[in-house]
């Protein structure tokens, strides 16, 4: 049984600094003058492969209440970070906070978000639907060059974090999988690059058959169980106390 918390690192990432924690958990999160601290922290996450969903949601919350703070680049970066949290709902949680019509009067340049939002949403649903080959095709298409050149190139380890989404999905569903299939999910050419990637995961490749074995874990190890009923003492409390009272 996998009973270790799946969310504690999400609620409070170990990398989150004290100052950010006080903003995320306190009422200072509503103070518009703190937005730059949170924005700086986002760019720190982008450079150092960290991720702090709640801190990023705090930025979107400030934008929601103070439309004049709205900065489309920040929003796009937040969405890109949230994209690879799939199958967890981070991406949707961010979108929920976006006002339908951002106020753009204070921007010097045209707002890039309306153009990119449908693309990001499509990318998200491809990941959420485990359609990894389709994700890579779309991601590398010419149409998405602006997204790659202007945004994801800055997000250190972006492609690897997409691969981690695929790895999570494969690990829980497969016990063995062909390297060809894995290669298409991870967008890595079959050969040394793929081999070293999967061996780091603790997966073993049988080079003769081209089949990768995945160690058993809580999700790909299946057992048929019969759930027996389990009676707790408190359920019997009434009966026992009644018996005790009448004897």
């Amino acid at each position: 049984m996998s009973s270790e918390s799946a969310t504690s690192a999400w609620v409070t990432p170990p990398t989150r600094p004290e100052l950010i924690e006080s903003l995320v958990s306190g009422v200072d999160r509503y103070n518009p003058s703190n937005v730059s601290i949170l924005e700086d922290y986002l760019y720190h996450q982008i450079r150092s492969q960290e991720y702090d969903c709640l801190a990023n949601l705090a930025i979107l919350k400030l934008y929601q209440f103070n439309p004049d703070l709205y900065n489309p680049d920040v929003v796009i970066n937040i969405l890109i970070k949230a994209l690879t949290a799939s199958p967890f709902p981070d991406f949707n949680l961010c979108i929920s906070l976006l006002d339908d019509r951002p106020q753009t009067a204070h921007l010097d340049e045209p707002d890039p978000l309306p153009q990119l939002l449908p693309t990001l949403t499509t990318l998200h649903s491809l990941l959420h639907q485990c359609r990894f080959p389709a994700f890579w095709t779309l991601y590398h298409s010419d149409d998405l060059q602006p997204l790659r050149d202007n945004y994801t190139v800055e997000v250190v380890g972006f492609e690897d974090s997409v691969r981690e989404v695929a790895v999570r999905a494969v690990r829980s569903a497969f016990t063995r999988i062909t390297s060809k299939r894995v290669a298409s999910y991870l967008n890595l050419p079959e050969g040394p690059e793929l081999e070293s990637y999967v061996s780091k995961l603790g997966w073993t490749l049988d080079s003769a058959s081209g089949v990768i074995s995945i160690p058993l874990n809580a999700d790909n190890k299946i057992e048929s169980t019969v759930v027996q009923e389990n009676i707790q003492l408190p359920q019997l409390a009434k009966i026992i106390s009644h018996t005790a009272a009448t004897v």
Binding site: P87, H128, Q129, C130, R131, F132, A169, V170, S172, D219
Partner: peptide, 8 residues
């Protein structure tokens, strides 16, 4: 791929 979705 849909099977992986089902697992999720």
């Amino acid at each position: 791929q849909q099977m992986m979705v089902m697992k999720q």
